[in-house]
Structures are given as structure tokens and as C-alpha cells.
């Protein structure tokens, strides 16, 4: 299954029954939600809740990991614990993770959650039921949805289906597919009747994939290494040469060089501090 898969959620069809949440909890063996002392809101995503139904003014939208096509979290992870599979899911390898939580900072949708209450914590987020996909099944949430508000399939086909729905009943839908182009596209597509700004992060910042923004800086590292190293070495050589000349001048003038001798440190080692104190006189004297 190399063709990229995706999930399309139609917010206008959701009745808010939370069968998806129930199915997700069962599939992933997630425990009961923790008491509120551990988290912000009891019905938002959490380490025990990979998907949730967000309610706003009579609108229900299912929130979950968007499985970006070019995920910020995958590029952010310094140990490659998060990986994007070719068939869609962004999956997590707890054996590699070192717990820096940079993925949580990087995710434009604020999805990854952490097991704050544990002494050995891991990142927790929707896996698009990757093990089920391997067995040729649909994600558990999709299978559980009684109104087919959330469906699964090839990303291209789902995009076409989304646009078909938008065209078929324009009065029912906002004319946009969330996730079509956001941050380079996501594998979870959303269509709705109202703007989804009330989600944790409704719309990602622009269509440019986020990893490219970091790479713009990181790709310059070799240049910086060569430039700074070369500059430092060059400056060292020039200033040293200039000082030697000044010293030779000073030695040529009998009155200025009182007690300072030519330095033995021809190899450029830093002088012992006591010498440096004496050095001050000759150094500043040489700059005339």
C-alpha cells in the first residue's frame, strides 16, 4: 500500500456521539482520562485521548493528528523518533525518543501530547491506526462512525470527493478543504459549514511546508563552519604578524623595548599569563 492514504472528516455529518473516541481508546488500549489536575481541559486531546470531538456553537468537529504530508514534528525530532510512512501515518518510536518535546513545540496544530504524570513518559498521538492499516483494515475511528462523517481512502480520491461535496451543496459547506494545501497538505482533510478557527489551531500558517523554513538556516552550516574558521585563522595570522613587526620595530628602537624579549611562542600557543601582563606594554606600544 504505497499510495498515500487519508481521512476525510465531514463536520456537517458529525452528531457528536464520540463513538470514534470510544473506538480509539479501545484500539489503542488507552486508560480513562486523568483527573483535571493534570491537564487543561477534560475534553481536549490528551495522552489518553488521541481523538476528540470539539464542540462549538452546535458544530462538532473531530480533532486528531493531521498527519501532515511534510510534517514539522518529523523534521523537528533530533533522533528521528517520529517518521512519516509512505502510506500516510506519522508514527512514533518510543525507543528512540529522548523526551525533548520539540515536536510539541513544532506542531502547527498543537497535536502531540505528553504523559506528564509518568516517571517514564512518552509522546502520545494518533497513529492513524498504522498497525490496522498493515492488516488491511481501516482506522478504528472511521470504522466506528455511525453516520460516516469520517471516511478513509486514497488521499487523491478523498480530495476529489471533498470537492464533489462542496460543489454539490454549496449552501451547506464553506468552500474550502482544510488540509488540502495547509503547510504543504495534510493527510487528514476537513470540510465544514463554518470556519474551524475554534479548533486548537484551525488553519496552519500558510501553504509553505514548515521543514523548509528550518532547512533554510541549517543548510548554511557548512558555509558558516568554513567562513568562521577561516576568518578566525586569518585574523589570528594577520594580528600576530602585525604584532611581530611591531615588536621588531620596538626592538630596533633602543628606548622603547625595556625588558621585553622576542617571544619564544613561535607555534602560536597562548602565552602564560605572567608573560601576558608584561606583554601589554609592548603590544599597545607597537600599535602606533
Amino acid at each position: 500500500m504505497t499510495k498515500p492514504q487519508a481521512i476525510l472528516t465531514d463536520a456537517t455529518k458529525c452528531i457528536g456521539c464520540e463513538k470514534c473516541v470510544d473506538a480509539c481508546k479501545r484500539e489503542n488500549h488507552l486508560p480513562d482520562d486523568l483527573s483535571r489536575s493534570w491537564k487543561v481541559r477534560i475534553d481536549s486531546l490528551s495522552s489518553t485521548r488521541f481523538t476528540t470531538v470539539v464542540r462549538h456553537d452546535g458544530e462538532y468537529v473531530r480533532e486528531q493528528c493531521r498527519h501532515c504530508v511534510q510534517p514539522a514534528c518529523v523534521s523537528a525530532c533530533p533522533v528521528g523518533a517520529l517518521q512519516k510512512r509512505s502510506d500516510g501515518p506519522v508514527v512514533y518510536d518510543s525507543d528512540r525518543c529522548m523526551g525533548c518535546r520539540y515536536c510539541m513545540m513544532a506542531c502547527p496544530f498543537g497535536v502531540p501530547r505528553y504523559e506528564w504524570e509518568k516517571a517514564v513518559p512518552h509522546i502520545k498521538k494518533c497513529t492513524m491506526c498504522a498497525p490496522r492499516l498493515d492488516r488491511g483494515l481501516q482506522p478504528a475511528c472511521v470504522e466506528a462512525c455511525p453516520t460516516h462523517a469520517t471516511i478513509f481512502g486514497d488521499r487523491d480520491e478523498l480530495l476529489a470527493e471533498a470537492h464533489r461535496r462542496l460543489r454539490a451543496s454549496p449552501e451547506r459547506y464553506l468552500q474550502t478543504v482544510y488540509g488540502e494545501n495547509d503547510v504543504g497538505g495534510t493527510s487528514v482533510l476537513l470540510i465544514a459549514g463554518v470556519p474551524l478557527d475554534f479548533l486548537n489551531r484551525g488553519r496552519a500558517p500558510g501553504d509553505r511546508p514548515l521543514p523548509s523554513r528550518t532547512w533554510a538556516a541549517l543548510s548554511k552550516v557548512p558555509t558558516i563552519v568554513l567562513a568562521v574558521g577561516g576568518l578566525a585563522a586569518g585574523t589570528w595570522w594577520i594580528t600576530r604578524r602585525r604584532m611581530k613587526l611591531a615588536e621588531m620595530n620596538a626592538e630596533a628602537l633602543p628606548d622603547s623595548a625595556s625588558g621585553t624579549e622576542a617571544h619564544p611562542s613561535g607555534d602560536g600557543a597562548p602565552q602564560d599569563s605572567r608573560e601576558a601582563v608584561q606583554d601589554k606594554g609592548s603590544g599597545s606600544g607597537g600599535h602606533r
Partner: peptide, 25 residues
């Protein structure tokens, strides 16, 4: 600060050069 501090050496074992944090590490 790390959740799993005993994995602090993992950037050497599993380098991921697209990450700014990898460069920091």
C-alpha cells in the same frame, strides 16, 4: 528537562540532520 534523560546520547546514535535541535545537541 528531558523526559527520558537516559536517552540523552541518542542524537549520536540516531542522527536526524534536518532538526535544529540536532544541531544544538
Amino acid at each position: 528537562d528531558l523526559g527520558l534523560p537516559w536517552h540523552i546520547w541518542h542524537p549520536i546514535l540516531y542522527p536526524q540532520d534536518r532538526s535544529a535541535l540536532f544541531e544544538v545537541a
